[in-house]
Design a protein around this nucleic acid. Sequence first.
DNA 1: ACCATTCATGGGTGCGCACCCATGATGGGC
DNA 2: GCCCATCATGGGTGCGCACCCATGAATGGT
Lengths: 147, 147
Amino acid sequence: MDFTPPPTLTSLTTYLLSKTGKAARAATAARLADEGLRMSHMAVLAALGDFGAHAQRDLGGRLEIDPSDLVKVLDDLAAPGWVERVRDTGDRRRVLVSLTEEGAAALKRLALGAAVVQDGILAPLDAAEQAQLHALLAKLYDGLDPT
Amino acid sequence: MDFTPPPTLTSLTTYLLSKTGKAARAATAARLADEGLRMSHMAVLAALGDFGAHAQRDLGGRLEIDPSDLVKVLDDLAAPGWVERVRDTGDRRRVLVSLTEEGAAALKRLALGAAVVQDGILAPLDAAEQAQLHALLAKLYDGLDPT
DNA sequence: ACCATTCATGGGTGCGCACCCATGATGGGC
DNA sequence: GCCCATCATGGGTGCGCACCCATGAATGGT
């Protein structure tokens, strides 16, 4: 039997985007799942690593995570002590979230794993093509905001 | 407040792939949802349009849809009469699935809608870049099989 | 001092997708 | 003629994601 996917679909760039994106997501998610984590966990760690401590609300804003969902993600990250939550002394409604040493180490580890996964997925492309792809996707990504 | 996403993530091509792919998927899915359809519905129509009638099992194989799930998709497509299921006279276990006239028309309509959505998403790129992107993604897509 | 607002939190819902298993009809090998 | 494999079908599960609402503490404006 023929396993060729329909050209009507594969001729759509959006279809290829969707499929490759899904593969990329699945591969990294699988890597994270090995540690019992999900995408949002890594996103939070990355945001804290890149920008330092956040008010919890701002963290949610940056990552476009529902405040209600963020609570649970932070619960997960606080359990192994990767993240610290302290009440903002200036505004005691707010909570300041910061990365601990262990959290930073974990982030480094996860980022490395993600890079490995990426190498696997981008393997069909040579270095120049990979750079090209990244640039093109970055343009698309920037144009996404009105989503 | 700053809404910039973490560079640790945006520097990963896989992250951009995942995000843009998700946007592409969401946009086309939204379009399909207007007609009460999902991705798999269009995939089935496309496969039938491109390759003609399929044994139901082969259709599932081509699209990598679980046989059990395919049944429900076909139920949906048969309801408006877009698809016909007839028992294979040679092997009465099998069912031959084919596209009706109305189904072909619907497919044409959906494909057009998908193209419009695509134009929206790829808008940040000029024609040459879009072609480049498509070529690169096609390479990646071909390398995916061992998923 | 009061009231509307902001915030974290807890609990719940729905959707899409991808699974899995059991059943009953049918076919093919032997 | 028997038995195992194949097939469509129906029913069910779990996960990730993205929502939404209610609550209680705290704040700021007036």
